[in-house]
Design a protein around this nucleic acid. Structure first.
Lengths: 227, 227
DNA sequence: CGCGAGTTTGAATCCCGTCAAGTTTAGTGG
DNA sequence: CCACTAAACTTGACGGGATTCAAACTCGCG
């Protein structure tokens, strides 16, 4: 199932490039590396479930992780999709010892794991760590509030257009994007059923969006902004 | 329009009872009080608008504040309703100098205002302050993620039932709740149009929910949990 | 080449938003 | 304390957007 790995050089550099770790001073970085564990999971593996006793938070090194909740009928709703560099379950650092949602590997992934207690202790000593936590929570909160606003204000085609524009390599009138994950994952991220995403893409054809597999061509970026 | 008030004794004790301030040590509390400004607004006053230069974050002392976004058609969507003790715009402490949403007084309110720069400086010196910020952001993030999950998983009557149960005075088989604000505000908080809230209430009648003005009677709490 | 997961498309349904009207509530001033 | 008015809320009718189910299709991989 999942493997505990030694922290190799490549993982170490990936970890240090993470927004969370990159902002730390040298001594704080070293101490965080000391307490880091790297783990790997296969597609569809569950990292943890909602309500389980929580002892760690995570940082994605490779691949994508899906955070989701279940309603009592067993229907799933994604709360967040975490990619390389993203941390999750950090809000347990302040308080709470049970995970608030389920987390699942969307593909083969490697993650770094940090024991909450050790990081709490470290945050007491190293001001950098506390600052990095604040930074991290703030970003996360910002994104989550944006997500609520988008859910409540935008239709499916608008959400897709918004996602595409957010992931466009800046300037030029046209662009080409390669989705970093399956369409069904994007659907969940945008709060849509896969069918709704598919329909949204086809309704964006008239705005110059062409989809072939994971490759998305945008012929007119400014037209997309009008959606 | 809005008034800048002197920090009177009553506001001071209110402020100190706030989750954010209550967790601080005595010296940190004193220094926060020093830099606090109390302001008052009338119903419908705008505190700030999305995109404006931001220099402060806020803590609600009295009344309710609505945080919302606009889409380009001018439609509004509430992101959060803040009541006494809640802080907002704290995520700007880490980064960003423009407000991310609009904020409006839902009634006559008093709020405490803290300049971001001063608080940032204080957080450097007083570890308590950094910890309180982390606490605050964590809570806020938790609530916001819950909100997304609820939006995506629950129907209108379920959201209302959920809200009622969250605000029930714990045990007993029946309960009575008085809404602390207008129904239209609750509707926004739950991501619904006022009409949808009204219909949700009437569909909950069969589950033993009776609404008269702001007073809501729940005859069978366990029945409500089944919704 | 063929299998299976992922995706697309169609049809039916449902939930919610919007508009319009009627009803209740709350706040004001006599 | 009551009457009056504006705001808040409720109710009905309608439409649109999204979910669900089912089936066809495509792509990637063995």
């Amino acid at each position: 199932m999942n493997k505990i790995l030694k922290l190799n050089t490549r993982d170490k550099t990936t970890l240090l490039r993470t927004p969370f770790m990159a902002s730390l001073g040298a001594s704080a970085q070293a101490r965080m590396l000391e307490i880091a564990t790297v783990m790997s999971y296969e597609a569809r593996d569950i990292l943890f479930r909602e309500g389980e006793a929580a002892d760690s938070f995570y940082c994605v090194l490779n691949g994508y992780v899906r955070l989701f909740r279940l309603n009592k009928d067993g229907r799933e709703a994604d709360i967040r999709i975490c990619g390389p560099g993203d941390t999750f379950a950090e809000c347990l650092l302040a308080m709470g010892d049970h995970y608030l949602y389920n987390s699942q590997a969307a593909e083969t992934i490697t993650v770094a794991r940090f024991e909450l207690q050790k990081v709490r202790a470290l945050a007491e000593q190293e001001k950098d760590v506390a600052k990095a936590i604040i930074q991290c929570l703030s970003n996360h909160l910002r994104n989550t509030m944006d997500c609520i606003a988008n859910d409540r204000l935008q239709t499916a085609p608008q959400r897709v257009a918004h996602y595409l524009l957010d992931n466009c390599p800046q300037e030029g009138s046209s662009a080409s994007i390669r989705l970093p994950f399956q369409k069904s994952l994007l659907a969940g991220k945008l709060g849509l059923a896969p069918e709704a995403l598919s329909r949204a893409f086809s309704s964006l054809r008239r705005a110059g969006v062409t989809v072939r597999g994971r490759i998305i061509q945008i012929s007119d970026i400014s037209a997309l902004k009008q959606i």
